[in-house]
Design a protein around this nucleic acid. Structure first.
Length: 500
RNA sequence: GCCGCCAUCGUCUAACGGUUAGGACGCCAGGUUUUCAUCCUGGUAAUCGGGGUUCGACUCCCCGUGGCGGUACCA
């Protein structure tokens, strides 16, 4: 394990422009894991520098999802009684409240000759870009305002012309940095544009805000998506111009759709919330996501958060993008569901079950009232998402099973025999006491019935299963009978006979 | 167009110059079971192409190819 001289500080810096994307969740996870395993600080900063894209409630939502996932900040933006709050000594942690700082440092750069005022209109910039594209040249700023005389600049400022501040990129310099996952990266400064660092509305762009905040907030490690890799040299330059030491960077591989394009809404869900709404357990989702672009170097695949904190390492982070494979997520989620304590499962499944009831206009039959938990538990070992719980025990909620009568016939039998056996069953079961309707007793009674009548297991149990559940894929008939009770069990058997 | 990053079964990945290229998901087959599922056993399937370097390349280098990202007064 590497030893760092400074206290490790990582940050998650979302923009409140939408919902929590699974890629963001993974970034947050890695940032959290790295901080925790180094006994450092994980904090959250709100990057709300684009007023036009801001979505009300988005920040609260992102924090909420993070909390559900078990990733809580030591410092920075947090949730207090559902509302945004801050804690820690490096605040404010909301960029829109730090405008004076960005302006101060932008001005400092201008004074030092490392940045300059630019009065170019967006129209001119757009035209420039189009010309460059047509001429198949790289699209970049043409330094138009770099050479403005100081008097000219002053005059235009005095007359209130709109301006932005651009960084002045040195002409021909190799910029080199060491990325924790990609190793050495080299870029020549001539490839770097004179990026705008302060916008006309007085807000900083990401680049300036990143340098200022991560310096002031003493971030030691910037862990972010691969899409930031190309602008990292700008950031290094900015840190240098401000006389600061840049943080250590780690650029994470992308998470992709099945067709290897950047994970997008069109091809499935990207919002963490959507997955939670389908009944993926937060622990399972986190576990699955942790393995997208990272592996422990062993064959272990199921990890708790604490285990991840111990095992995680940037040395084992992949460089290539990883496809988000829902099939594997389903498997993993199923594993987590099966392992859930019964009580916890019922608790977790209940909201999904209730939604199923209202969506399908079901009311709860009398025999179910007392056996609610037992009913839900019938589904626990058989589903891979909590949202499947209702469908899994649908047969308990309606008398109208609506199945194909042919199903009642076992593969090694015929309709006549099925009918005969169902009749025998009704006779036999009619004589059972209510107390025989427990899983164990009912099973014993039936096995006795089978040997007494010299029948095969399948001859009896198969039609019984279908009669009780209307499905060939369903929990065992003993468990179902226990919940149904005598009256409902018999009535379903009679219905079955009528169908044959 | 220009710049950058990347490349092992369908998917997630292991092998950091020497392995019959391993595991997991999926899929297929067999077994257990009262059907399905679970569970167990087995099978299927990969080093993008071409050149080097080396006694020996998945591994190192170069060139292609392909994918992705960036190229905003968005982050």
């Amino acid at each position: 394990m590497p030893l760092f001289s400074k206290k490790i500080r990582t940050r998650f810096a979302p923009s409140p422009t939408g919902y929590m994307h699974v890629g963001n969740l993974r970034s947050a996870l890695y940032e959290y894991l790295f901080a925790k395993q180094n006994k450092g600080i994980f904090f959250i900063r709100l990057e709300d520098t684009d007023q036009s894209r801001e979505v009300a409630g988005a920040a609260e939502n992102i924090l909420k999802v993070l909390k559900i996932a078990g990733i809580e900040p030591d410092e920075g933006i947090c949730l207090k009684e559902g509302k945004l709050a801050e804690k820690g000594h490096f605040g404010p942690y909301t960029q829109s409240q730090r405008l004076n700082l960005y302006q101060k440092y932008a001005n400092q750069l201008v004074k030092a000759g490392l940045a300059y005022y630019c009065f170019c209109t967006e129209e001119r910039l757009e035209l420039l870009r189009k010309d460059q594209e047509a001429a198949k040249l790289p699209t970049r700023y043409d330094f138009h305002c770099r050479s403005l005389l100081p008097e000219e600049v002053q005059k235009r400022l005095d007359q209130g012309d709109k301006y932005v501040i651009r960084m002045k990129v040195p002409e021909n310099r190799e910029i080199e940095f060491e990325d924790m996952v990609r190793g050495k990266i080299k870029v020549n400064s001539r490839e770097i544009d004179d990026q705008i660092i302060l916008k006309a509305d007085g807000f900083p762009t990401y680049h300036l805000a990143h340098a200022v905040d991560d310096h002031l907030m003493e971030t030691t490690h910037v862990i972010r998506g691969e899409e930031w890799l190309p602008s990292t040299p700008k950031h290094i330059l900015l840190f240098e111009a401000l006389g600061w030491e840049p943080p250590i960077y780690a650029h994470l591989p992308m998470i992709l759709n099945t067709d290897r394009t950047k994970l997008s809404k069109r091809q499935g869900d990207v919002a963490v919330e959507d997955y939670l709404a389908k009944g993926y357990l937060p622990e399972a989702l986190l576990n699955f996501i942790s393995l997208l672009g990272w592996n422990p170097g062993t064959e272990k695949e199921l990890f708790t958060l604490d285990e991840l904190i111990k095992e995680f390492s940037f040395a084992k982070v992949h460089k290539a993008g990883a496809v988000f494979d829902v099939k594997k997520l389903d498997w993993m989620n199923g594993e987590y569901i099966k392992k859930l304590e019964n009580k916890i499962f019922v608790q977790a499944a209940m909201p999904f079950f209730e939604k199923f009831l209202t969506d399908n206009n079901f009311t709860i039959p009398a025999y179910l009232e007392a056996n609610f938990d037992k009913a839900l538990l019938l589904a626990q070992q058989r589903i891979s998402r909590l949202a499947e719980v209702g469908e899994g025990i649908r047969f308990l909620l309606t008398e109208n099973l609506g199945y194909d009568p042919a199903k009642l016939v076992w593969k090694k039998s015929d309709a006549a025999k099925a009918k005969e056996i169902l009749n025998l069953l009704i006779n036999d079961i009619s004589g059972y006491a209510e107390t025989d309707f427990t899983k164990e007793n009912f099973e014993n009674k039936l096995k006795d019935f089978i040997t007494r009548n010299n029948l095969a297991n399948g001859d009896v149990l198969w039609p019984l299963r279908v009669a009780l559940t209307g499905a060939d894929k369903s929990p065992a008939p003993f468990e179902v009978a226990e919940i149904l009770g005598k009256e409902a069990t018999l009535s379903r058997l009679r219905q079955a006979i009528e169908k044959l």
